[in-house]
């Protein structure tokens, strides 16, 4: 088994007031280990310690106890940060910069050379559907647009570890779908993704493993398939079944089980339905203002 990309051991963090008196225990005895190519979800209600854990992992907060290793080093090591892409909980970008300037600044801090930088920026803006924003300043962007720029910033260095804090917050369903697709594509390329969210559907769609936090303590942890499996409960999916065959099947099952099972028609989830409607509307009426149709995954990320 390869070395973990990220590991925490018995991590603890208590927020204190001015007089160093404990105010809130945000994280308690958190032990995680993320393998390469894995999408790991941090779940929990508001105030459960998800964002604090991420800030500890990034070295923005100092743990009271425990140990964090990212790529085998301290998270405060600058070399480690070259391999991390981070999308904060709130995309507080510089409002007086335009999208390109904002990405250029981030790329410069990663030491990406100017030619490569411009190429990557073009690719990323295409990818997040903001290539048309031109000289518009970020201060004029909607929350969703700013979030997309935040995502582009998190990916500009082609990171090995991507940390996404509530990545779909403020995004429309199209954007949400795209973020999820990006996460899956990154994982397929062997990148590790740490995702924090309280939107369960998002986590369920993309994560391999999850950890549920409550009051800073891990309440459940493991592969999502195992955690969501309901014992002694099976599901049967059938397509194009005519009424006669359906009755025969029901009679057969009634004979076998001793009681008549209930049959219900399958339903699409709302996200799939929404995406279909918008795709059709796009075909009929063309692009609306705001974000445009997102492009493919940036070439340098493929």
């Amino acid at each position: 088994m390869s070395d973990p990309i990220l590991s925490t051991e018995d991590l603890g963090k208590t927020f204190r007031d001015f007089w160093r008196r404990p105010r809130a225990r945000a994280v308690d005895s958190l032990s995680l280990s993320l393998e390469p190519g894995e999408v790991y979800g941090l779940l929990g209600p508001n105030g459960s310690g998800k964002s604090t854990s991420i800030k500890l992992i990034l070295g923005l907060l100092h743990p009271d106890k425990g140990r964090i290793r990212v790529f085998g080093k301290s998270p405060r090591d600058v070399k480690v940060k070259h391999r991390i892409g981070y999308l904060p909980e709130e995309s507080n970008l510089y409002p007086y910069l335009d999208a390109r300037e904002s990405l250029r600044f981030t790329a410069a801090l990663f030491g990406i050379d100017p030619e490569e930088r411009e190429w990557r920026i073009t690719q990323l803006l295409e990818m997040v559907g903001l290539s048309h924003t031109g000289r518009r300043r970020i201060g004029e962007f909607s929350k969703g647009m700013a979030r997309r720029i935040g995502l582009a910033q998190a990916l500009i260095n082609d990171p090995d570890l991507v940390i996404l804090d509530e990545p779909t917050s403020g995004l429309d369903p199209l954007g949400t779908r795209q973020v999820k697709d990006i996460i899956r594509s990154l994982a397929e390329r062997g990148k590790t993704v740490l995702l924090s969210s309280h939107l369960l559907a998002d986590v369920e769609d993309v994560c391999d493993r999850i950890c549920i936090l409550y009051g800073g303590i891990v309440r459940a942890e493991g592969p999502i398939r195992e955690l969501l499996q309901v014992a002694n409960h099976l599901q049967l999916q059938l397509e194009d079944l005519d009424p006669e065959k359906r009755n025969q099947l029901l009679n057969l099952l009634e004979d076998m089980l001793g009681k008549r099972p209930q049959l219900e028609p399958s339903r699409k989830d709302l996200e799939t339905f929404f995406l279909e409607v918008v795709a059709k509307a796009r075909e009929d009426s063309g692009e609306a203002s705001g974000t445009r149709k997102e492009g493919e995954l940036a070439e340098f990320l493929v």
């Binding site: 800030k55 070399k79 991390i84 981070y86 904060p88 507080n92 801090l109």
Partner: peptide, 14 residues
């Protein structure tokens, strides 16, 4: 105050 520093310090910058 604007929580921008969190992002900047997550970048490779002393």
């Amino acid at each position: 105050a604007n929580k921008r520093l969190q992002h900047i310090l997550s970048l490779p910058l002393r």
